[in-house]
């Protein structure tokens, strides 16, 4: 069975380490916050100017002055802090954030990512994604392996305008966990019940399969 969006988030959450500062993008990445492993402490950074982002507020306690990068009302946890946008991106470009999780429309085998624009169709802007991918040492992309028509989104070369070049090293899709190196996707784990053949068929870019590929564990 291919993973649900929640399960993709759950698998990514297994990569979190104690004392990490983490920036989660909009969409599947946001769900990662629901699956933080017990016994570790991580702090979520919201690029609009907050460290220590907490869950949504209890109904009636929403504050228009406390939102996340998706413009949703949130809370701030004990030990959190607030700051301006220049300082926020100083944290990001200055590599003080240990992990960035973001979504993508396409990823290529050399680690390029496209997630901000479909020419003539969707032009919403890159927000903070270009700053994040240009600087982060540790980026995990959360995405579906194929688009709605079944076309692969893991490509030899991205067809859409790029967000960043040579920056993605890990991808978790609904089918697999892959690493990017040596200009190829390396298959590390399969979604439970998904065969290597299915993953090969769904991957347009060069896919390296070495030895037995284990199933993800939850």
């Amino acid at each position: 069975m291919a993973l649900s969006k929640q399960e993709i988030a759950q698998r990514i959450a297994q990569e979190l380490q104690d004392k990490w500062y983490v920036n989660l993008g909009i969409g599947i990445p946001t769900l990662v916050a629901n699956y933080i492993p017990k016994n570790i402490d991580v702090v979520f950074q919201s690029e609009n100017g907050m460290l220590g982002m907490g869950p949504f507020p209890i109904e009636g306690e929403e504050d228009a002055d406390l939102i996340n990068a998706g413009k949703q009302t949130v809370t701030i946890l004990k030990g959190g802090s607030l700051f301006d946008s220049a300082m926020s991106f100083a944290m990001i470009r200055g590599q003080h954030v240990q992990l960035t999780v973001l979504g993508a429309m396409e990823v290529s085998q050399n680690g390029d990512i496209a997630n901000w624009k479909i020419p003539g169709k969707m032009v919403k802007g890159m927000g903070g994604a270009m700053d994040l991918v240009a600087s982060a040492e540790n980026i995990i992309v959360a995405m579906m392996h194929t688009d709605k028509t079944g076309e692969s989104k893991l490509l030899k070369k991205c067809s859409l305008p790029l967000t960043g070049v040579n920056c993605v090293k890990k991808v978790v899709t609904n089918l697999a966990y892959l690493e990017i190196k040596n200009n190829a996707f390396y298959l590390i784990e399969r979604a439970p019940g998904v065969s290597v053949e299915e993953i090969i068929a769904a991957t347009e870019g060069t896919l390296i399969v070495e030895g037995e590929i284990p199933e993800m564990k939850f």
């Binding site: 946008s85 991106f89 903070g128 270009m130 240009a134």
Partner: peptide, 24 residues
């Protein structure tokens, strides 16, 4: 990019005519 926008605003007020950033 958002961080570039923020830094360009900061630079404007801080007497920095231009700067290098990896973003983009």
């Amino acid at each position: 990019p958002q961080g570039t926008l923020a830094e360009r605003c900061r630079a404007t007020g801080a007497g920095i005519p231009a700067f290098y950033t990896p973003a983009g």
